[in-house]
Write a protein that binds this DNA or RNA. Structure first.
Ligand code: MN
Ligand code: MN
Ligand code: ZN
Ligand code: ZN
Lengths: 148, 148
DNA sequence: TTCCTGTTTAGAATGAGTCAAAATCTCAGC
DNA sequence: GCTGAGATTTTGACTCATTCTAAACAGGAA
């Protein structure tokens, strides 16, 4: 859990930030690393607590700032379910979310292009959609991943 | 806008409430009427302000209570977009929501059964979904409905 | 009437998220 | 190596939708 960011991930971060005129900072690296390390859609507080292990002086406001920056430059997506705390997801592939009503856990569900297409097709003329969010709510069989 | 609830709508309210052991009250009637009168997905505050015209003494807490009751007995759905205030929708047919990024308005998008089916089909075995929420975000051509 | 229960009400409390201002960092130019 | 400008971080105060609490209120049964 205390591995460094891989060269690849670091340059991904680097590139996305500089594309919008922003810099890589130790705080941003730490927060980004936390998101990649455990892709369980953590809340801000969860990110904060994990990141503080590697960087004890880190402030909550900075976590908010970093995450907002990442969302702004397309590195990360926000995930909301009803009015619960916002969660963060570094999976950039088109996918839906499934929230387990028992555990509260959020799972990624791959979204094939043809399903995406059939969804877009229900929009009447005149509606021009930039983003689509799909979220399922129900029960998921445990199948837990302790590793990672 | 100050019409009474139709016999049909009233009995709908009546029946849904009594099904879960609750009563029709003047406040509930008023709030329900507001939801049916203008199906523009109002926030709690909007419902509150509209309902107060017919019933000046009504309190905000009661509007929260009524709406929660309606959601609980399946008369109304909550609609959330990101972390904005919750909106309320009395359309019980399966439908998605489109939020106009310019006006903030929320439009209902009919959801044909085959699209719903294709969505369900992306769930891996073990995932048992009870509800699906779909929301689009983008621009919609004005086409405003002043009537109603 | 009196009692019981569900409902409504006002106001306090909660808590995720935001904001403002001071402190700190980075780095280009000297 | 300094210095200043601009970006970033930090702290703590603030916002505001929603929830909670406890006190009125209503209406039917006994
Ligand atoms: Mn699960
Ligand atoms: Mn519109
Ligand atoms: Zn995800
Ligand atoms: Zn709707």
């Amino acid at each position: 859990m205390s591995q460094n960011l891989s060269e690849l991930d670091l340059s991904h971060l680097q590139e996305a930030l500089s594309r919008s005129g922003q810099k890589v900072t130790p705080q941003r690296e730490t927060v980004f690393k936390v998101l990649l390390a455990k892709r369980d859609h953590p809340t801000v507080d969860e990110v904060f607590n994990r990141a503080r292990e590697a960087m004890p002086g880190l402030s909550l406001a900075t976590v908010y700032n970093c995450l907002e920056t990442f969302v702004g430059c397309g590195l990360v997506r926000q995930v909301n379910h009803e009015r619960e705390s916002t969660r963060y997801c570094p999976n950039l592939a088109p996918h839906a979310h499934f929230r387990d009503k028992e555990t509260g856990r959020v799972h990624d569900i791959d979204l094939p292009p043809e399903v995406l297409g059939s969804l877009r097709s229900i929009l009447p003329p005149g509606f021009d959609s930039e983003t689509i969010e799909i979220s399922f709510h129900g029960r998921a069989q445990a199948k837990d991943g302790p590793a990672s």
